[in-house]
Structure formats: C-alpha cells, structure tokens
Design a protein around this nucleic acid. Sequence first.
RNA 1: GCCCCCAUCGUCUAGUGGCCCAGGACACAGCCCUUUCAAGGCUGCGACGGGGAUUCGAAUUCCCCUGGGGGCACCA
Length: 498
Amino acid sequence: MARIRVRYAPSPTGYLHAGGARSCLFNWLFARHHGGTFILRIEDTDRTRFYKSSLSDIVESLRWLGLDWDEGPEVGGPCGPYFQSERLPLYQKYARELIASGHAYRCYCSAERLKSLREGQRAATPAQNTDAASSHIGYDRHCRELTASQRAELESSGIVPVVRLKVPLDGQTAFHDLIRGRIAIQNEQMDDFVLLKSDGFPTYHLANVVDDHAMEISHIMRADEWIPSTPRHVIMYNAFGWTPPLYAHLPVILSPTGQGKMSKRKLVGTDGREYNVRIREFRSAGYLPEALFNFLALVGWSYDDKTEMLTREQAVEAFDLDHVSRSPAKFSYDKLDWMNGMYIRQLEVNDLAGRLHPFFNAAGVDIDMETVQRMTPLIRERMVKLTDCVALTDFFFVDELHYDPQLLIQKGMTSDQSRRVLSESEALLRETEFVEAALEPPLRAKAEELGLKARQFFGTLRIAITGREVAPPLFGTMEILGREKVLARIATARALLQ
RNA sequence: GCCCCCAUCGUCUAGUGGCCCAGGACACAGCCCUUUCAAGGCUGCGACGGGGAUUCGAAUUCCCCUGGGGGCACCA
C-alpha cells in the first residue's frame, strides 16, 4: 500500500458534534496506527449556510480531544490551501475539463423549473408513474443534449449556467467498501447532478473528488450516509481518468432518543432528559477528553471481547478496519458517564484538582487551589462528571446550614442520646488534633462508650456538621472545615435540639 | 415512491462453520464491605427477528420476509 493519507473534512455550518468527532477520530486513529498523514480540510463551499463561529469551534474541539492534524488550517502543508473556498479556480478548471471531454455539460434550467419538476415527481402516485415518468429520477436532463445554437441563445440571454455531470444512461457503477464489500448501483438510479453552482462554487461532489485526488488521499473513512453518493464520485474519478481512493463507510451514530441518526441539535428524550451532542457541551458538562476519546473510539469499533478502557496509545496501536462494525450504534450516555467516572478516579489528586478548579469558579465558588486539592480526595470517588464537585462540596461554603432538626435523631435513637452525642463530641473535639487520622479513634471510642452504632453516632454528627444525610467522609470533611467551624455547627445543632 | 445499507441480551459489543445450551461492558436487582453516599467485590436477570436452503454440523454461508437506518438539493 502506498502512503496512508486520510482526512476529516467538516463543513463549517455548525459546531462539532459527536458524530463528526467520531468520524474524525477513526481517521486520526487510522493515520496514527499506520504512521500516515492526517489532514483537516474545511469544506466551506456553501456560502448560504456558512457559520462564522463554527470553524473555531471545530478547531478547538478537536484540539481538546487531542486530535491533531498534520496538514490543514493553522498548520499548513504541501497541498494547501485547506479551505475549499480558496481553491475555486481549481474546481472551475476541472469542470471545464469535464465539459471539454464530454463528461459534463452546462445546464440553464431555472430554480423554478427544477422545483416544479421535483414537485411533479413527488405527486405522481405509483399508478400514474408511467415509464416516461419513472425513467427520470431527479433532474430530467433537459439541457443534456442542447445544440450549440440553443446554448448560444441561452447564454446571450444572460443566464448563468451550472455544470452537471453526464451520468451514463445504463450499466452500473460499483465500488469496493473495505468494511462492507462490493456495493453496486444501477446508473439509471442517478441523475445528472450539479458539479459547479452558478455562483462559481463547486458542490460537495466536485470539490470532494478534486481535492481528495489533489491531496493524494489514500482512504476515505466517512459515515454510512455517504454510501449513496459514492458511485457518483466513482463515475467522476473514471471521467477524469483517476484512480479512486479506498472507501470505508462507518456506521452512523443513532440518537439515544430512539428515532433516527443523532442530530446536530440538543436532544431531549421523552422523559425530558437532555443529551449533549456538541463536543463543547460535553466539555462544559464536565466530561474528560480522555474519557470521551475512549468512548468515541468504541462506538462502531471494538478492540476485543472484554476491553473497555483504552489509553490513547493503546487505541492507536490496536485500531484496525476489521473490527469496525457495519451496523449503526446508539450513543450510550449511561456508558459514557460510567467511563468518565472511571477516568476521574484514575486521575492523580493534583491533576484532578487542577481540572476541578475552573468548574468551581464557573459555578461562582470562590476557592483557592490548595483547598481544592484538599477536597479532591474526599469527592474523587463520588463524581461522574467534573461539574459534580460543586454540589458535593456546597456545605463547606455556606455560613448557615439548613436542615430538619429531626434528622439529628438517627434511627433508633432518643433525643437525649442525640444531645449526648453532640455535647460529648464537642468536648472531645476541643482537645483533639484536627487531622483526619487523629479524629477517628476517640470519636469511635465515644460511640462505643455511649452504646451507639457507628451509623447512629456518626449520622448525628454528619447532619450537624454538613447538614446532609449524604456527604463525603466525615473525618476528612472535619479536617478541612477546621475546629472552629465544626464546633460552631455542633453548637448550633445542640441548640436546635433544645 | 425509488435506491442503498444494516440486523447477537434494554444498550454497546465478542463471535469470520464445530472451542457457543453464546463471552464481556453499561444499565438494572440482590448480597458483601462500610460512619452516609459513592467506589470496590460477588451473584443474578437478560440476546443469535421469522421462514426456508446449503452442511455431518450454522449466531456464523445463501435466498425470502419482517424490522431498523440512510439517500434521492445550484447542502455537506
């Protein structure tokens, strides 16, 4: 096999979403695995849908995921420019070439005519669909055989034509897909699609073929939804006399809500649950890039019968097309959550604390790095997403706790017992060194002395100190809060029990 | 409507003719551990869509049906 050169070619019409990121990831993995070149190309040929901020979003999101490109925007390369809008003369040249060689023609049909043509075809019922009607799919080839004088007349009337490909009227076009085998379609199923628009911009079909050839792309890995247009591209390669790249169509990602493929917009399930779709949303929702990377690598590809957690390096090492699935896959948010928790737990305390800090700030919690580092071990095993750190530690930052005093009286306890727990603890805590390890033995002994179960004794203390039934480990929490605050909160609790 | 693709537990998947009365993971349930919650450990629940054919033997090959998905723009 020649040099491996693959590309991810998004169009800047929106933010980078999970499906696009997955396609990009597979190309990146493939390139890195084979020591090939990974190219980022921007397909900005649709001026009407161009969305200014999407380019920076795509670039930032890919960088965040760690998907770096060898050629493309910001890094350049020998096959640039990597923005199709800057390559217009090239497409126009090749369109003219196709016209000259008899493989394409100029079409002068108005948008109105095409529109009514489509509507007429859609309205036709199967019964009405005579041979004459059904033999035409899409454009009716009205301009395919215009004479020179007809063309001259239309030209002089000021109509700016588009260029359409002359698709063979019969026969079939086939290609070999690396993960699906041979795929063939009858040529009569294809219409004479547009190559060059009247504004001088190419359509996806032309630009894609011209650029993949010019950039010496060896493999095209893209979503399954492109299968129907692949034969069109093959016809073009043939018309140019070029050899098409190798194709591998990836399974699409299905929406977790159960209908259709995953869209680019935010999804809301029937139960009201909201699903992130854009990479930037996963980021701000507190997902780790390494977790999302790992997860995305496994949607549509598998390593073996048991491995779920893969480092970036292992994924590069192991990636192959043989284990790319053919069937579409639903995006499992539950599994992503689980995986994100796994990755969070694997992080070193200081690393995790560093990632948590901005989330505290974003939530309006004024906290210094040292405190974050002290809290991190307490909450590391309790987080699914980085954003969870705020809710997990909110009781640290309030001046006053609000809770039902009844909670101080744990199951099976009397109010007298609860009062004793608080008063005895208060006395004890005045003289105990306020570090986690030193706090535990005397308190535990006190619980036993009072004839209380640990869950009762510490349950009462937990409510008094954190105001919550569910909280991080008590002794570590007390150490961070400090003697003064802990004693004050216990005093408050005692007052509540009077 | 026409064309194309796909089909193993609820979900993601392993499986490339005998190793499979189908393995792993998420989710779910139970138990253990335990100062709560988590985390962790153990156990359980749970699938080859249907019908034909090929074969000594089929989840694995072929055909039909059904179901799901995608495409049919001067969008990508």
